[in-house]
Design a protein around this nucleic acid. Sequence first.
DNA 1: TCGAACCCTCACATACGTGTGAAGGTCTAC
DNA 2: GTAGACCTTCACACGTATGTGAGGGTTCGA
Lengths: 122, 122
Amino acid sequence: MRIGELSERTGTSRRLLRYYEEQGLIIASRGANGYRDYDEATVDRVIQVRGLLDAGLPTRIIKQILPCLDKPRAIYFPDATPEMLATLEEERDRMARRAECLLRNRDAISEYLDAVREYNRV
Amino acid sequence: MRIGELSERTGTSRRLLRYYEEQGLIIASRGANGYRDYDEATVDRVIQVRGLLDAGLPTRIIKQILPCLDKPRAIYFPDATPEMLATLEEERDRMARRAECLLRNRDAISEYLDAVREYNRV
DNA sequence: TCGAACCCTCACATACGTGTGAAGGTCTAC
DNA sequence: GTAGACCTTCACACGTATGTGAGGGTTCGA
């Protein structure tokens, strides 16, 4: 699939798809004419990347954690240095803290909305 | 308390404290000499703001949701227009989605780390 | 064969959170 | 009264994710 289709199917501008490639988050083979050629799985990958970006992670980190997120990651464990594992652990904890913060504040907003609705009903 | 103390107690540069004020996230009264004067509650507020920023929310949004997060927000309900309520609801849902994404990927990382550890043990 | 609709690279632009430093005022302790 | 530590505003700079457009090649249908 070419970049236009991937763009439409993921709701992501062509510019950003090229940027993600530049950052090493997705890969594309090239046709004889130089056009990028994506395979089907890239759709999901782009959606995942966007989710992580929207969740506040920089591409640098996303690039690091993506290999752990591949579905059939089974057989080969890349040269996972202890430092890299430590980084991953750290990042995992950061993510947990972020999620906690988000949920806490989400609840607070919900409470507030409930209170306002109650107030307006009376 | 002056900006230096607030900076130390929140682990936030003076520059950023001034920026948060400029963005309407915190307020400070001024002494006769022009120095900012913060009250005790500002410490918690700054920490909350930092958490939200780290969770990926822009100051624009944080400014909007902060009023709902004040502890004794009881008595007055500000002129909560329907549009603002809708925005809040939307933002709440976005936060939930982000949190979900973070937790999902956190779990994936955990799984990966477990697998690697298992692999290295054998 | 022409035009539309793709694709390419390159480069400049913007918003946002943040750093850094200049130029200068205030306060405190020696 | 002077040095040092604090404060002020202002302004320029950077990294990151994104937009936009120029200049140019390719493909395909009328």
